[in-house]
């Protein structure tokens, strides 16, 4: 019997649920630990929301926002925030997350996830914004580390230290995207192990895994390939230092058949189980 799932995300492999798979998932109800969707795609009503509510009857759902612009210096978009609030009330997601990025300046919105210098100034600004969002939603927000194609020489701390400080100041959680960290390690020389040690393990509530592509020597976070061996290795390192957490396979372009996605989630699941076995 279908019943609404209200508890937190299960500590298993999950998949990013995208439009090409809605029908198959609802018709066949395959064994999926949980699913994640992009929040903005379900703002409003009609077919998108009603589809998500049906999915919600069978699987725990995580809402992953891409448009809030936590680090933008323009005022927080109240209409956007209240649309997210309404969606949360309707879906009652097991987790809700946004990115550590900005998207609005000079009277425009850049619909992307943009990096900024990790300064004390930015830290207090982003902390205030996270608090505003958490207050509006009445719950904890998970904040995801960013894949970036450049960094800033005047950053005063690492992204890991910045995230750690944010969790201290706001009580937010961390969504640790392992592939984003790998992209930054390759592109920008970020010390991945230092990042993993810098973020507080207890604040990490979810992992993301995905594939990338390469353009002119730059790793681009395109979510259009299987997870590569180096990212699996980094994930295993994270599991040892942080511990097992719900783990999502993200695939947004050249989306493969559902069994391929489920196969990737099963690979994450195997590693989670080994991690549990070691802990016992």
């Amino acid at each position: 019997m279908a019943r609404p799932v209200t508890h937190a995300l299960p500590c298993t492999g999950g998949i990013g649920l995208r439009a090409p798979h809605y029908r198959q998932v609802l018709d066949r109800l395959p064994r999926l630990g949980w699913v994640e969707v992009h929040s903005e795609n379900f703002f409003g009503g009609g077919a998108p929301l009603s589809t998500l509510l049906r999915v919600r009857e069978h699987y725990p759902v995580s809402l992953h926002g891409v448009g809030m612009g936590l680090a933008s210096t323009t005022p927080l978009d109240k209409a956007h925030l209240s649309a997210l609030h309404r969606l949360c009330d309707a879906v009652k997601p097991a987790a809700i997350s946004e990115h550590l990025s900005w998207n609005s300046a000079a009277g425009m919105v850049i619909n992307d996830l943009l990096p900024f210098p990790y300064t004390q100034e930015a830290l207090s600004h982003v902390a205030t914004r996270i608090e505003q969002v958490q207050e509006e939603l009445g719950r904890q927000l998970l904040v995801e580390n960013l894949s970036s194609y450049l960094s800033f020489a005047h950053s005063e701390m690492t992204e890991g230290a910045f995230l750690a400080e944010l969790t201290q100041r706001t009580g937010c959680g961390i969504l640790f995207d392992v592939e984003n960290l790998y992209v930054n390690a390759c592109n920008l020389g970020v010390d991945a192990k230092a990042f993993i040690k810098a973020i507080p393990a207890e604040a990490v509530k979810e992992y993301h895994l995905a594939g990338y592509s390469v353009r002119d020597g730059c790793l681009v976070d395109t979510h259009d390939h299987p997870v590569c061996p180096e990212v699996w290795e980094m994930y295993e390192f994270a599991l040892q230092h942080i511990g097992p957490r719900p783990t999502l396979i993200e695939w947004d372009s050249d989306i493969p058949p559902l069994p391929v996605l489920m196969g990737e989630a099963a690979k994450a699941q195997q590693r989670l189980e080994i991690c549990y076995a070691c802990a016992e």
Partner: peptide
């Protein structure tokens, strides 16, 4: 102060 150690800032 944008920095890209492996490629030009223009690529980013």
């Amino acid at each position: 102060h944008a920095v890209c150690p492996k490629y030009r800032v223009a690529t980013a």
